[in-house]
Design a binder for these strands. Structure first.
Lengths: 227, 227
DNA sequence: ATTTGGACATGACATAAGTCAAGAGTTTTC
DNA sequence: GAAAACTCTTGACTTATGTCATGTCCAAAT
């Protein structure tokens, strides 16, 4: 696929004309990443932003002793690393590829120009940042006001939703990474999965999970019930 | 002060002309709030956003059993409640006045129109949302990767920065609210303040705090040291 | 085929921080 | 000015979750 063909598949650019897609394509730079390779590092100056073309990318914070908190996982079509574009500072977190991935890189200045002459692009970007702010409120709520079983239950229900409501789902990241996403460590996640199984809330075989008691999971997610 | 005079004091509207300030002033609605009164509630449909004129406003999440996590505290000139404006859904959190406050309310549609014809306004808003995203990455980092003493140390150092580096500072919110901001409870905050005093890191009398060992506090904030 | 390494699970243990309860000190209210 | 209502502090106790160590299973590498 050519770079220009990618453009039309990026929701952020939906409101733009074919000409503008061409313009964007001409400023975009295609970058491949191996699994686990660094895309950018917290604190590095951000001179542009990225869009995932294929693969998946995680955005995360790191503690001095190496514990990781994943903030987002982005897939095809999703932009990331925009904060410094509009704020003119450094990246607030790290980004690495979860799988072999390809991204498009858009340098800051050309993109800002395009926004100035395209209200719909500006509004689309405002929509994206707003959705991301909402996602953060959920993350903070989970970390601060829920215990790990509640976070896990909420995540499982969320996964089920994205697969329009099936009870059989597959964890799409390793359990270690899931722990980092939920703000805990693999040992704790493992134990809690075990307890959920013992209580008949789920079945769990490797990465496959089957939801057996939706109501129970919802009660957990809302903090009404405890494991 | 007239509403139009307020406009020129709002950083978000800096790039606009006097005419545009007048236009904005004509769509803005002035709303007074008593201390502790609700401005909006999580889940309520958002049909516009607010700007603080005077006083202070907290944005927070609530757990089922009433524990509170403060996400932001906003003062004069700062906008809040914009997420639903650009995303078209409900407020993702609660907002109440920390003190007697006055806010301006801007209905969604008129504001969107203004953005469409004003790239500088769009960019200013993108800058604000980006800064807020950065603030959230810090909050998540604190909640997930730091212990309470580290969060408190970081907050004290931050307060000192905003008062350009003095060692003598005054907590500008009640200790109960500070606990909610740091993601803990008043009892824990109280104990940790006590330990910091005993270790000679700070002096603490009522709401007055004096930083005695900046390096020690920084080490705590970075997780290098423990209390 | 053997080895190496990673992912995951599980047990024993440590600890940060929450819960519950009581009391001191302030501020508000009538 | 007494009473009521808060706010904050402190102590005793509980608990969720992190730490450390060990073992298994499976996949990749040699």
């Amino acid at each position: 696929m050519t770079i220009i063909q990618h453009m039309s598949r990026i929701p952020l650019f939906e409101g733009l004309s074919a000409d503008q897609h061409r313009d964007l394509g001409s400023i975009a730079i295609e970058k491949p990443y191996k699994r686990g390779s660094t895309i950018f590092t917290e604190g590095a100056p951000g001179t542009g932003f990225y869009v995932v073309v294929s693969g998946r990318v995680k955005i995360f914070k790191l503690s001095p002793d190496g514990k990781e908190q994943i903030l987002h996982i982005f897939g095809p079509g999703e932009p990331f690393g925009e904060v410094p574009v509009f704020e003119g500072r450094n990246f607030p977190a790290h980004a690495t590829a979860l799988e072999p991935s390809v991204c498009l890189y858009f340098p800051r200045s050309a993109f800002i120009e395009l926004i100035k002459s395209n209200p719909s692009l500006a509004l689309a970007m405002l929509g994206i940042l707003s959705r991301r702010l909402r996602a953060f409120t959920v993350l903070v709520d989970n970390l601060s006001l829920k215990e790990v079983p509640g976070r896990l239950a909420a995540h499982l229900l969320y996964l089920s939703e994205t697969k329009d409501g099936t009870d059989s789902l597959e964890l799409d990241i390793s359990k270690g990474q899931l722990a980092a996403l939920l703000g805990t460590i693999p040992e704790t996640l493992s134990r809690i999965l075990g307890r959920m199984v013992k209580q008949g809330l789920i079945e769990s075989v490797g990465p496959r999970v089957k939801l057996l008691d939706r109501q129970g999971l919802e009660d957990l997610a809302q903090g009404v019930r405890r494991l």
